[in-house]
Simulated scan of single mutants.
Amino acid sequence: MLAPGLRGWLLPREGLIAPIPAMAALHAGAEGARWHWARAVDQVLPGELHFADGGRWSGDWAVDARGLGARPPLPLRGVRGEIITLSLAGHGLRRPLRLLHPRHRVYLVPRSDSEIVVGASEIESEDRSPVSLRSAVELMAAAQSVLPSLSEARILRLDRHLRPALPDNLPFVHHEPGLLRLNGLYRHGWLLAPALVERLLGDAGLATLAEPADLEMSP
């Protein structure tokens, strides 16, 4: 049950996604793709990938979605984000919940009937060290103020990573013959990506990039 006295807006079609299972599903669905795990890409040019180890790949189209790996020339910065996964049986939350607060942009997302994700800090730093006590306390206190029953939740995971962001915090979409670029999705990458990819392919005049057997992927 939510804390008494709260007021809010209902967004009936708001989306949510579990990124880790989604990544696993995307990987499993990429039949015929040739993966280049842990092989850094130094440069992406029309129809070409240049690897840090000196190797090169060429094809009809190259897609640059490297996040912070695309700087320079893109003026990207990393914005640190931390999230907490909590376990609480019967928490009762059925949809994403966002707290509008002058200091904390906190969301609560149900993953199951007993698991909730609380996020996310927004720190102008490229520090990749473990989650700080301050961030964890602030996130959990803000979440518990909305859903008081979280005081009995158990902490399952503390995660952190860097979001790729441009100076205006808006996505970067670019196409030219043989090359597609998508970057700077900041806090909203998972939910914006499908629409942005559709727009990018439409602008480039492509119904689809290639058959699965023609894909080369370098995570």
Score class of each variant (00 low, 15 high):
Ala70Gln: 04
Gly119Lys: 00
His50Asn: 04
Pro164Gln: 09
Ala204Asn: 10
Ile17Gln: 10
His27Trp: 15
Arg34Gln: 09
Gly202Ile: 12
His161Gly: 14
Thr208Arg: 15
Gly55Ser: 12
Val197Gln: 04
Leu76His: 05
Gln144Asp: 02
Leu16Thr: 11
Arg71Cys: 01
Trp61Leu: 08
Leu170Trp: 06
Pro194Gln: 12
Ser149His: 09
Pro73Asp: 10
Ala142Val: 08
His161Arg: 10
His174Gln: 05
Leu11Cys: 07
Gly92Val: 13
His161Cys: 14
Leu182Trp: 04
Phe172Lys: 03
Gly8Arg: 11
Ala30Gln: 15
Arg181Leu: 01
Glu122Cys: 05
Pro19Cys: 14
Leu16Glu: 11
Leu26Pro: 01
Val131Arg: 03
Leu133Ser: 14
Ser151Met: 07
His188Lys: 08
Arg157His: 05
Glu31Ser: 13
Arg103Glu: 09
Arg13Ala: 05
His174Trp: 09
Arg111Pro: 00
Leu180Ala: 01
Ser58His: 14
Asp159Pro: 00
His174Pro: 00
Gly205Ser: 06
Pro110Val: 09
Gly202Tyr: 14
Ile83Val: 08
Arg160Tyr: 09
Glu216Arg: 13
Ser135Cys: 08
Pro177Tyr: 15
His175Asn: 08
Ile155Ser: 04
Asp203Ala: 11
Gly54Lys: 08
Ala25Gln: 10
Ala38Asp: 15
Gly78Thr: 10
Thr85Ala: 09
Ile20Cys: 06
Arg77Met: 08
Leu93Ile: 12
Leu162Trp: 12
Leu166His: 05
Leu76Ala: 03
Ser125Arg: 08
Arg163Val: 06
Ala153Arg: 03
Pro219Asn: 11
Ala142Glu: 05
Pro4Asp: 12
Leu150Gln: 13
Ile155Phe: 10
Gly184Val: 06
Glu48Trp: 08
Leu166Met: 04
Leu86Thr: 13
His36Ala: 13
His36Asn: 12
Pro148Leu: 04
Ala143Gln: 04
His161Pro: 02
Glu124Asn: 05
Trp57Tyr: 13
Ser114Ile: 14
Gln144Cys: 15
His101Trp: 12
Ile123Thr: 04
Glu82Cys: 07
Met217Arg: 13
Val146Pro: 00
Trp61Met: 07
Ser58Cys: 13
Glu82Lys: 04
His36Phe: 15
Arg134Asn: 13
Arg111Leu: 14
Gly184Trp: 03
Ile116Phe: 02
Asp168Leu: 06
Asp127His: 10
Pro212Val: 14
Pro164Asn: 05
Ala204Ser: 06
Leu200Ala: 03
Gly178Asn: 01
Ala52Ile: 14
Leu158Phe: 09
Pro177Ser: 08
Leu11Tyr: 13
Gly92Ala: 13
Leu192Asn: 01
Leu158Glu: 03
Ile155Trp: 07
Leu6Gly: 04
Ala89Gln: 11
Arg66Glu: 00
Pro4Asn: 14
Ile84Gly: 00
Arg80Gln: 05
Asp214Thr: 02
Leu68Ala: 03
